[in-house]
Nucleic acid binder design. Structure first.
Lengths: 236, 236
DNA sequence: ACCAAAGAAATCGTACATTGTTTGGCGACA
DNA sequence: TGTCGCCAAACAATGTACGATTTCTTTGGT
């Protein structure tokens, strides 16, 4: 149904990615990006008046955006002392990919049992684009990879789990954007995707689930290793 | 360390249950309670000026509280049309207990491997209070049961998972407050807790994990059945 | 009975007041 | 002279009030 070319990563349906205000690019999204992308340092103070000035608006939209971010866990508050950036550090990344290791296999098993021929065709199509791109454009790879998994999860009945996965995915995607894939990781991703498609075709839900667990685990470890390496480089 | 008597359910450390404002009982908490406890109907409009008047404050604190609740998933927003109560229906409950079934076993396995004699003593102590209470005071049972599981999860290194569990727990606790435990469920809870303690003592992490999966599953199904029964009674 | 336009109502952004926190300087004392 | 403590001024968070814009309702006309 979707055009073959545009695989802009999109959240599973029913999840509002809309910001608080009616503006095109809401303050919420801007601040959120700044946090996830690392442009705002860990534990940095988020002064309302500053942010308002910087984004050319008044304080109220900023205040509401910060509360929204707080609810999502990206910002911490201390009464009468304002907001700070919750650090997206190794612990943070480890926490969320470990949750992914627990949740994604369940989503995958359900998908395998419910997959239609169209679903499988779409998986193979995306996988074709991934292999065609072959990590030349890393951003594009990231989009395609996200789309691949979205196909599997977007129709799941547990909207909460799907939403959770998506939010975590967004963070991991932003963090890993700063790194390159190692050759080993590239090979693993491609082979695991192919293997997964085979399991889906065979209707082998359990094997697919276990494979996804390894897949997510490997992805998480890969990101963590990059973070460690960069931190070591910074310290040394 | 804690007094033996007061087992007010408290969140695992590091989780801020504080509202937006400095007030004792913040608007945030009040609205949140109203939603979880069912005093605000599903999909009901949340008009800012009304809420402000009702709680004797101005609109800004309410607006921020609503954004916070939105971030936590209790409220939905449509631009220029304001907020609505996200329905805490059967789907909602099923979604979050299913996530619990996936996450809690992992937390439990870790606990079993890390438990100290003090931890076990505390578990047994709480279990003693639970059996002593024997569901006479259902609210007290709920508090104790939550405390029981909090002992296991509060020290886990994955703060995200612990926080997620706590948030889900709060919702389930509020929902189940409206129902009574069936006799079958009471027996299951007591025996499963005892069995769990035995596994912890034996250091049998895998068995403990599988048991917790069944425990959470049973608890979720129990709540769902009550909800179905009540809805049927309403409809009929 | 349907449509349009006026009116009401609510959201969203702006400006301001109040209250609490932080900071820098000044003086007392060792 | 250096250090500690206090006080005041700057600063920022929180609460209040209001105007602008959008959406919903209702009424009047065809």
């Amino acid at each position: 149904m979707a055009e073959t070319s545009d695989f802009k990563a999109q959240p599973p349906e029913g999840i509002d990615a809309i910001g608080a205000s009616s503006e095109g690019a809401s303050i919420y999204q801007l601040i959120r990006e700044d946090i996830i992308e690392g442009r705002l340092a860990a534990n940095e103070r988020l002064v309302v008046t500053d942010l308002a000035r910087r984004h050319g608006t008044s304080t109220n939209p900023v205040r509401e955006a910060l509360q929204l971010l707080r609810g999502e866990g990206f910002v911490t508050f201390v009464p009468n002392r304002g907001a700070r950036v919750r650090p997206i550090d190794q612990d943070f990344v480890r926490d969320i990919y470990e949750i992914g290791v627990l949740i994604e296999p369940a989503l995958t098993r359900w998908f395998v049992n419910m997959a239609t021929v169209e679903d499988i065709a779409e998986l193979e199509h995306i996988q074709g684009l991934i292999e065609q791109n072959n990590f030349a454009d890393t951003v594009r790879h990231s989009e395609l990879d996200t789309a691949f998994h979205t196909v599997m999860y977007q129709k799941h009945y547990n909207r909460h789990a799907a939403e959770l996965w998506w939010k975590h995915r967004e963070v991991l995607r932003a963090v890993s954007r700063r790194f390159n894939f190692t050759l080993a990781r590239r090979a693993a991703i491609l082979s695991e995707h192919r293997e997964l498609i085979a399991y889906v075709k065979a209707g082998n839900a359990n094997e697919a689930g276990e494979l996804i667990a390894r897949h997510v685990e490997g992805s998480g470890r890969h990101i963590l290793e990059h973070m460690r390496a960069r931190n070591a480089a910074r310290a040394g």
